[in-house]
């Protein structure tokens, strides 16, 4: 009977291997397709680098801000939530800019003039970036705006918030990324 036990053992191993491979493949497929968060940038990730022009024609690169905390905001002039939080962001920026926190406000593809006039209207002092072809907006997977990424001095995304923020929250978030 030892030979037959041997055969039986081999068969059990084969069956286990086939079922295990099956479960791994199936698990991966269902995980990647259904349960995985589709957001390309998640909390804990290194914020992907980008390079955009400001309304003043300067070039801004995210990686140049290493060592500083970055309050990265996606917005547009037609979004009411953005309009509400812009002055809050600016007043907190006045307080935090000397402490090493930068605000980058990325407009999601409006004409430069429209954005510039809006920034002038609200006296925004932080850099307002023009994502003309929406490459950065897409890279960050931003759908509803306003959306804010809180990035620390090492470039790690500490938090991601969708929706308009009250001034108090902006203050708390900015104080988190003071280097």
């Amino acid at each position: 009977m030892s030979q037959s036990n041997n055969v039986k053992q081999k068969r059990l191993i084969l069956r286990t291997v086939i079922l295990a491979v099956f479960i791994i493949v199936l698990g991966y497929t269902i995980y990647s397709n259904v349960f995985k968060n589709p957001a390309p940038v998640q909390v804990g990730d290194i914020a992907p680098d980008f390079e955009l022009q400001t309304t003043n024609g300067e070039t801004v690169k995210l990686s140049d801000y290493r060592g500083k905390g970055v309050f990265l905001n996606f917005w547009s002039t037609y979004c009411e939530g953005c309009e509400i939080e812009m002055p809050y962001m600016d007043s907190q920026y006045q307080f935090f800019k000397d402490k090493g926190v930068e605000v980058l406000a990325v407009d999601v593809g409006e004409p430069a003039l429209t954005v510039k006039k809006f920034a002038e209207k609200y006296n925004l002092t932080f850099p307002v970036l023009l994502d003309e072809k929406q490459e950065v907006t897409k890279r960050y997977g931003v759908l509803p705006i306003p959306a804010t990424f809180i990035i620390d001095k090492d470039g790690v995304v500490l938090d991601y918030i969708e929706g308009s923020l009250p001034e108090q929250s902006i203050r708390v978030l900015m104080s988190k990324i003071v280097p």
Binding site: D49, F50, E51, L52, D131, K133, E135, V136, K138, R139
Partner: peptide, 8 residues
Amino acid sequence: GSTIPGAQ
């Protein structure tokens, strides 16, 4: 050139 999003 640069393949960073947004870059010219």
